[in-house]
Design a binder for these strands. Structure first.
Lengths: 100, 100
DNA sequence: GAGTTATATTTCTTTTGCGCTATATAATTG
DNA sequence: CAATTATATAGCGCAAAAGAAATATAACTC
């Protein structure tokens, strides 16, 4: 699963948002998002496959956290769009200036 | 369809990437991405519903272009993650400095 | 107005993905 | 070691989405 597909699903975005607060055991995530335990477990697996989160074992618990750089591909894809819009705004500014 | 879902599909990202070169008639998009004409038409409709592109008629042709700000929601969602990682890097820097 | 071009819509089949329940695994406690 | 807790996996039903073919619509040309 690509990061693009991973963030398409609201429940996965909710999990990621939650993990911004810091590392959390799977159980806390289940409590936070209103979803069944197996459902959360499945989404966590997909998020791991997408490289957006990582896991470590702590006894019987599994601690999940955001993977730094997991959204790098997404950021990289977005970059030229930011440039595109910046150019458009510049062009608009120029246009408005010429009209004055 | 949300922008998050819209960019999940590779063919739709290809269309968006293509439109960064400027406004294009539907036919050019069909030629560029290797997909059937109805398929492209369907994806263009979804991209419009997501607010990522807009269309104007020019005779019998339909000209599509990127909608500025269409990815704003996505950018807004990403913002706190950039802050999150910036903090992490700062914390790492601090740590390394203390070790010196 | 008949034929042609450009695009959209409909319809169908197939695949994918979500969320659930039930079950398995693995660590912990008594 | 039996019972409990934490998490993962398997299997299922269903809804959504993708891709293709066929058809419709609308504009243009002669």
């Amino acid at each position: 699963m690509t990061p693009f597909e991973a963030i398409a699903e609201p429940s996965r975005r909710a999990i990621l948002d939650l993990l911004r607060e810091g590392e959390q055991p799977a159980g806390s995530i289940v409590s936070a998002v209103g979803m069944s335990q197996p459902g959360v477990s499945k989404q966590l697996k997909l998020l791991r496959e997408a490289g957006l989160v990582s896991m470590r074992a702590d006894g019987q618990r599994r601690l999940y956290r955001l993977e730094p750089g997991g959204l790098a591909d997404l950021e990289a894809w977005l970059l030229p769009y930011r440039r595109f819009w910046a150019r458009r705004l510049t062009a608009l500014d120029d246009h408005l200036e010429r009209e004055q």
